[in-house]
C-alpha cells in the first residue's frame, strides 16, 4: 500500500514539473500564438459562425443550400477544375526542372533558382496578369510576332480571356511554387542510394521505379495539393484578367463583398468562403493518407 502510494506520488510530481517546464518553455512563444489567434483563427471562426446564420441572425443552413445551386455550384466546379488543371500542368514540369537543377546545377545556381522562384511565385498577382496581356493578348507582342510568321492564334479560337487562358497564366506562378516546395524533397535523395542500387544491378530506370519514386511520392502529392489549393484560391490574377465571363468562387466572393449586390446575400459570401475552406481541407485528406503510409519508413 505504502509503496504504491509512494510511487504514484512520485509519478504525479514528475508529471507536474514536466508540465511546468513545458509551460515556461512555451512562454516566449505566446506572442506569436496570440497574434495568430487574433489575426487568423478568430476571423476564420467568425466566417464559420456567420455562414451558419440567416439574414435574421438565426442559426440556419440556408446559405449552404443556396451555394449548392447555380450560379454558385458552377463557380465551384470551375475553380476546382482550375486548381486541379493548373496543379497538374505545373507539378510535372516543375518537378522535372527541380530535378535537373538538383542533379546538374552548382550550389550557386540552386540558390539563385530558389530565390528567383520565390519572387515569381509570390509577386505574381497583378503584374503577372498584365504581362500576359502584353504578351498573349490580342495586341500582345508574341501574338503579333506569330501573326507575322503566318500563325494567327486568335483566329484559331485562342483567347487569353478564357478558361484555358487562365490555366496557362496560372502556370507562371504555379511552376515556380512547385520548384520551391519540391526541391527540398529531391535534396533528400542520397547519392549513396543511387550508387548502391547501381551496384546491386539496378538500371537507373529500375532505381526510380523501386526507390526514387516511392520515396518522392509523398512529397510530390503534398506539393501537388498545395498547388491545387493555390490555384483554387488565387484571386488577384483572375480579377485583373477576366472580364467577368468565367465564374470562379474567389471572384464571386469579391463581387459580393464589393457590395453592388443585394444586402440579403451578405452571408452567402461567408458560406462561399467556408465552402472554399472545406474544399481546401478535403484536398489535404489524400495527403494525410499518403503521409500515414509513408510514416512507417520515415523518421
Amino acid at each position: 500500500m505504502i509503496n504504491s502510494y509512494g510511487s504514484s506520488k512520485g509519478v504525479s510530481r514528475k508529471g507536474g514539473t514536466f508540465a511546468r517546464r513545458n509551460l515556461i518553455i512555451a512562454l516566449p512563444l505566446i506572442p506569436l500564438i496570440a497574434y495568430l489567434a487574433f489575426f487568423f483563427f478568430w476571423p476564420m471562426v467568425m466566417v464559420v459562425t456567420d455562414s451558419l446564420k440567416n439574414n435574421d441572425h438565426h442559426w440556419s443552413f440556408i446559405n449552404f443550400t443556396t451555394i449548392t445551386h447555380k450560379p454558385y455550384s458552377t463557380a465551384f466546379k470551375n475553380s476546382i477544375l482550375l486548381g486541379a488543371l493548373s496543379a497538374l500542368f505545373a507539378s510535372i514540369p516543375g518537378a522535372i526542372f527541380a530535378y535537373i537543377i538538383e542533379v546538374r546545377g552548382s550550389e550557386k545556381l540552386k540558390g539563385f533558382v530558389t530565390s528567383l522562384s520565390g519572387v515569381l511565385a509570390n509577386t505574381g498577382g497583378v503584374p503577372l496578369a498584365f504581362m500576359f496581356i502584353a504578351t498573349f493578348g490580342a495586341q500582345g507582342s508574341a501574338i503579333k510576332i506569330l501573326k507575322a510568321l503566318g500563325i494567327d492564334l486568335y483566329s484559331g479560337g485562342f483567347t487569353l480571356f478564357s478558361f484555358t487562358g487562365i490555366v496557362f497564366v496560372y502556370l507562371y506562378f504555379q511552376i515556380p511554387l512547385m520548384v520551391i516546395i519540391f526541391s527540398p524533397a529531391l535534396h533528400s535523395i542520397r547519392n549513396e542510394w543511387r550508387d548502391a542500387a547501381k551496384n546491386l544491378g539496378a538500371t537507373p530506370r529500375k532505381f526510380w521505379r523501386t526507390i526514387g519514386v516511392p520515396l518522392l511520392f509523398p512529397s510530390f502529392t503534398a506539393s501537388f495539393l498545395l498547388l491545387f489549393a493555390s490555384g483554387f484560391a488565387a484571386y488577384a490574377t483572375a480579377r485583373a484578367m477576366t472580364v467577368g465571363n468565367i465564374a470562379l468562387v474567389p471572384l464571386v466572393i469579391g463581387t459580393l463583398v464589393d457590395g453592388n449586390v443585394q444586402v440579403d446575400q451578405a452571408n452567402v459570401g461567408k458560406s462561399l468562403a467556408v465552402g472554399m475552406v472545406i474544399v481546401s481541407a478535403l484536398a489535404m485528406i489524400p495527403y494525410l493518407i499518403i503521409q500515414r503510409r509513408a510514416r512507417r519508413w520515415q523518421q
Binding site: R190, E192, W193, D195, A196, I211, P214, L215, Q298
Partner: peptide, 10 residues
Amino acid sequence: FQSYSLFPNL
C-alpha cells in the same frame, strides 16, 4: 558504403 546507403523505404 560509409553509411546511409540502405534504401529507407525497404
